[in-house]
């Protein structure tokens, strides 16, 4: 599944950079320390997080739990592949419940 551009870890993160306020909660409290600040700014002038060390990302979603702005979340590739195959995931469950 890797696109060959990065070495893949067990999971990855998704960032909505435009709503990030650069608080660095996700970076500081990432259990595997795989995140860093981007060099770029978003439209509001904040550095948003980047997956600096993708091989270290476990997709544990602690970043998603910490992020006060709902701007980042993580996922294990295992769950992501299931989700995109339409097999249903925790996120799907939440969407149904909600």
């Amino acid at each position: 599944m890797s696109d060959g551009t990065v070495q893949r870890g067990r999971g990855t993160v998704f960032v909505r950079k435009e709503i990030c306020k650069g608080c660095s909660y996700c970076i500081d409290f990432c259990p595997t320390k795989c995140l860093g600040f981007s060099k770029d700014f978003n439209a509001k002038g904040y550095h948003y997080p980047d997956l600096a060390r993708p091989a270290d990302c476990s997709g544990c979603d602690m970043c998603g739990l910490y992020c006060p702005d709902f701007a980042i979340y993580g996922m294990r590739y295992r769950d992501l592949e299931k989700a995109t195959a339409g097999a249903g995931t925790a996120a799907d469950g939440a969407a149904k419940q909600a």
Binding site: L51, P54, Y73, A83
Partner: peptide
Amino acid sequence: LAIAADEREYPVENPV
């Protein structure tokens, strides 16, 4: 499925 930098389609939504 690689690093989702931004402005790509999100294959799954943030569970929150």
